[in-house]
Amino acid sequence: MAIVSAFLMPGNPLPFLQRANPPWGIIADGAVRAAAALAASKPDVLLIYSTQWIAVLDQLWQTRPHSTGLHVDENWYEYGELMMDVRADVDLAQACIAAATAAGIRSKAVDYDQFPIDSGTIVANGFLNPDARIQVVIAANNIYHDFAGTEQLGRIAAEQAALQGKRAAVIAVGGMSASYFDHDIDIAGDRIVNDATDAANRALLEAMTQGSDALRAGLPAYNAATKGDMGLKHLGWLLGATGGFEGATVHAYGATYGAGAAVVEFHLG
């Protein structure tokens, strides 16, 4: 495996846009620590899967060499704007497309001017790769792919990175619990929507610190207890790409308008 590091990053843009708000600043601070760990692992490429890039037909992969522009989130527009600055590893993305298609997952390249790269990818890339120095491979979340299918995609991406001799960091972009407050709140007092959901999030984070077997064992109970972001399929990408991990450091955990957000660094064997 060519995987040198792996991270869970929240896709909600609030910590990136409003670090001055204490509950969100905690998450942003954790992302800064994750960025330092990522830099230390010296990756050639980031393998990114974001729950917020939705696909319904085929599996999509970003192949635009350099995507730039202003991005306004459809929900959180009042908190500011995001600058898109993403450089794709086109050779590796094309290899992933070919390999996924060969594996029976019909895949397509996405190379369009002003394509709206999702908020989650922009934010994770902005925290971890602020000068866009490191190229990325970005895979869409086809909503009809299950957890196992998403693991397969992650595995394919890692295999192709290894075949190209590249050091890859795996970035799973998505939230924990996905239940938001559906009314205006005092953002300075942001918290998880309820105690049971908070407890479920904390239990799953604790499982992550114990390794991938514990995470797998904890997922069914988590999904039964709360509504996770897209069934936490982004962790399927991470598990598939890494082939498992021995433990994890939770750099931050908190709420983004009631939903769970965590920054986690996984320790590879």
Binding site: L57, E74, K108, V110, D113, P116, D118, Y180, D182
Partner: peptide, 24 residues
């Protein structure tokens, strides 16, 4: 939208809309 019902509130909006699902 997650928090309530939103209304466009800018007199004129323009730009290029690329469908994230069907960009082709």
């Amino acid at each position: 939208t997650l928090v309530g019902h939103h209304f466009l509130g800018v007199p004129r909006l323009s730009g290029k809309s690329v469908d994230p699902i069907f960009p082709n």
